[in-house]
Design a protein around this nucleic acid. Structure first.
Lengths: 233, 233
DNA sequence: TAGTGGTCTAGACCACCCT
DNA sequence: GGGTGGTCTAGACCACTAC
């Protein structure tokens, strides 16, 4: 298929994109309706529909029944982040990955956590902390709480052999989650673990995953100074 | 439509999701083909196709011609971030937005930037810095370089009235971009501007946008301490 | 109420790859 | 070779909503 092919939905999408990008269709402007475009491109309406629907999903077009399709005024850019297993992320950087368990024990979860997860106060959870290394240098600190009521077999897992990160992907399905990205100053303990100086700015990812309404795990990943998460629009 | 409706692609998708989440279909396992599922649900194959295609796009299914469809082994979680105009982000938090220009002048861009953008060294660019406020408190610092060869009218824009962020969205179409998220310690100047203490951990977004192969703008957004970017999986 | 997008169908042909 | 998903068609009905 060449880009000029206008019988395929990809070809049509490319052409529509061109008209948007080159301001042939102005932001806020009305676009011909599906039937007309189908006629212009000599294809079925469903084909035009698929091309336009994806552009609308991407936020470049606003579509409403009866009102028609318009070029979006504020193309909010939509960024897609693929969050891989930490081991793979390290290995993709060409470094050797290693995991070191710091601590693993069952203990009542702090109030802030149980209330956030909607669990009774004082609920016992499995608290696992460890370090991921890249070429033997600390890469990130993983501080995780696991819902052992939902995952009783987590008690018997040996997190000195398999990182909690990977164990959970294998054993704990989830249906959704909340993620937050922020920056924090390293406290004394974290600085020591990450081989950084106290107060260093750390990139932090907080993540809670749910299986329907039941919390599965809550984790805070604190990356060693200098970490950068990259992606494309 | 109820969730049990299996004549609509959404209903079918919900049912497929259930079978995946509840391990009725095991990770790595082969799934019935489209024709069989269409018969089971009493619908056209195209309807099943749409439901499955979206799950494959989301990374939950692996589909290959002839090989069939399998439940993905490693559902790499895919996070979608919507990056809005800064003004809207502030206003969505229920705060009043204000922009204050710090500096705007045409000057040769630093070598690190021109080489990153693929421009000749010493190329003149428009350097605009300013602060976005939320309820009169510094929210983020915007440090931006604009390609005035591509956008000569940027010279005449009054960035004390309109933030460069919004001006560009109105005037500069782009086809792609690179984004990086990181954490940095505030230096003395940034700390003063953001009303923070020196060394505070700042959440930083670096972004370069391109129009095909031509750089449009490069910007660094440094958020005041405490900022957190949230989203869902 | 009429025009637009949203969806579904039954069928067809094709591209790809061989769990 | 042959089975599978990828796509396209022509038509239909429906849901929504601007007018």
């Amino acid at each position: 298929m060449t880009l000029a092919d206008t019988n395929s939905w990809r070809g049509i999408q490319t052409e529509l994109l061109r008209r948007i990008n080159e301001r042939e269709w102005l932001p806020g402007g009305l676009v011909p309706n599906e039937a007309d475009l189908a006629q212009e491109f000599g294809c079925a309406r469903a084909t035009v529909n698929r091309a336009m629907r994806e552009l609308a999903d991407a936020g470049l077009l606003d579509r409403r029944r009866k009102a028609g399709t318009r070029v979006a005024l504020h193309p909010t850019s939509r960024v897609i982040l693929d969050i891989p297993i930490i081991r793979l992320e390290v290995e993709q950087r060409g470094a050797e990955w290693r995991y070191g368990l710091v601590e693993s024990r069952v203990t009542p979860a702090p109030l802030a956590l149980t209330s956030r997860l909607g669990l009774p106060r004082g609920t016992e959870m499995l608290h696992v902390t460890g370090l991921h290394y890249a070429d033997n240098r600390p890469f990130l600190h993983e501080d995780r709480w696991i819902n052992i009521n939902l995952l009783p077999m987590a008690r018997d897992a040996d997190f000195s052999q398999v990182s909690a990160n990977e164990w959970l992907i294998q054993h704990a399905p989830y249906t959704g989650g909340d993620i937050g990205f922020s920056a924090m100053n390293a406290d004394a303990r974290l600085a020591e673990l990450l081989d950084a100086s106290e107060g260093s700015a750390l990139f932090v990812v907080d993540r809670i995953t749910w299986d329907k309404d039941t919390p599965v795990t809550s984790v805070r990943l604190s990356y060693a100074p200098g970490y950068r998460m990259n992606t494309k629009i």
